[in-house]
Simulated scan of single mutants.
Amino acid sequence: MLRWERGTVTGVRTSWHGVERLHVELDGEDDEPAGGETVEAIAYPELTGTPARGERVLLNTNALRRELGTGGDALVVARLDVLPTSAEPAGHMIKARYTPMQTMVDAIDDPDSEHYETIRAAQDIEGMPVVVADLHSSLPAILAGIRAQRHSARIAYVHTDGAALPAAYSRAAARLREAGLLAAVISTGQSFGGDLEAVTVHSALLGARHVVAADVVIAVQGPGNLGTGTGWGFSGIQSAEALHATAVLGGTPVATLRVSGADPRRRHRGLSHHSSTVYGRATLTPVHLPLLERNYHKYNGFHASVREQVKTSIMEPARARGIEHQLAEVDARGLRDALEDVPVRLSTMGRSLAEDPEAFRYAAMAGRCAASLIP
């Protein structure tokens, strides 16, 4: 069910490419156009155009009223007095299909795309490393690790559709793109709004290699990971499919371990049960599992515990199913400086780099591991 409210745009907040952040004064009682509360709202110009101050808008306020964290803004569904200018894509691919906001895009695997012949002819991704993670907050940390090992590496981000569907919603990806640290953002499945669009993760990986000429890919869902506290009910489970796509296409899959030294939830302390489930039980191909090397000067009981968790909850269950993952010893020297140099704010579940350094350290180690595997 949707919760609808109407209001008037009263101001503009800090925005970025693909996202307009607005102040909207909601209608008061009896549908008066003024007198209600002012809320924060998001508009996607690709869908609605850009509402101006004084415009009347229709909002979906489900997330706002439920006081969700990530994604807890009101969303502009329509401008009540203005019909946006519509662009006409060359192709026929529709995303957010069969919803009132379905949108047409020019996908790289569409027959009308300029890249169609390249994608149709591509057979594999030529050993390219693909780093997979379940939390979007890992993206800048993985990138930092890649650049710490291979500063000039050309990096593409594949935005999967497990969480936020608009790729533009990721302020981190937008900032990294503006800074020239990401060569391209490719939105896949039902997600949309990247520099390039793809129908599947498979075609996105082929596009990253053969259209973007990427050396390495980071594949992760957008902001807003959905978890339920159950063993299998979390959106990051789709990480397994990205690993499978990588292996099928002749790439090198690298699995980011979700680790925390500060999460108050026991199931996510040390090695998260999400990583145990995805890599130990759901993944059907061997992957590289980056761990802190033992001779690192800060190796301690925490890291030894994580190593043991990886062996008992990932390696052994996978081996029982005939899957032999490979532990990758990673030198973490210099990674803290690399993380601090990233031009975006590092935050995972509301915790900063200072508050939960290991969460970001392990993501950066996955990046460094992948960079060392670039053919």
Results as ranks from 00 to 15, higher is better:
residue 108 I to A: 05
residue 110 D to A: 06
residue 113 S to M: 03
residue 115 H to V: 08
residue 119 I to S: 04
residue 123 Q to R: 05
residue 124 D to W: 09
residue 125 I to H: 10
residue 126 E to H: 13
residue 127 G to C: 07
residue 129 P to F: 10
residue 129 P to G: 08
residue 130 V to M: 01
residue 131 V to C: 00
residue 135 L to M: 01
residue 136 H to T: 09
residue 140 P to H: 11
residue 142 I to Y: 06
residue 142 I to M: 12
residue 145 G to P: 13
residue 146 I to L: 11
residue 146 I to V: 15
residue 147 R to M: 04
residue 148 A to P: 09
residue 148 A to S: 14
residue 149 Q to N: 11
residue 150 R to E: 11
residue 151 H to M: 04
residue 151 H to E: 06
residue 153 A to R: 12
residue 157 Y to H: 13
residue 158 V to A: 04
residue 162 G to K: 13
residue 165 L to V: 07
residue 167 A to H: 10
residue 168 A to I: 08
residue 170 S to G: 12
residue 171 R to H: 13
residue 172 A to T: 15
residue 174 A to S: 15
residue 175 R to I: 10
residue 177 R to P: 12
residue 179 A to F: 10
residue 183 A to F: 14
residue 183 A to G: 10
residue 184 A to K: 11
residue 184 A to G: 15
residue 187 S to C: 06
residue 189 G to C: 13
residue 189 G to F: 13
residue 190 Q to P: 03
residue 191 S to D: 01
residue 193 G to E: 00
residue 194 G to D: 12
residue 195 D to T: 14
residue 195 D to H: 13
residue 201 V to A: 09
residue 202 H to V: 08
residue 204 A to Q: 02
residue 204 A to L: 06
residue 204 A to I: 04
residue 205 L to T: 05
residue 206 L to N: 14
residue 207 G to N: 06
residue 208 A to W: 10
residue 209 R to V: 09
residue 209 R to D: 06
residue 209 R to E: 03
residue 211 V to P: 04
residue 212 V to N: 03
residue 212 V to D: 03
residue 213 A to L: 08
residue 215 D to P: 14
residue 215 D to A: 12
residue 215 D to G: 12
residue 218 I to M: 02
residue 219 A to Q: 01
residue 221 Q to F: 00
residue 226 L to V: 06
residue 226 L to P: 01
residue 226 L to H: 00
residue 228 T to W: 08
residue 229 G to L: 10
residue 231 G to A: 07
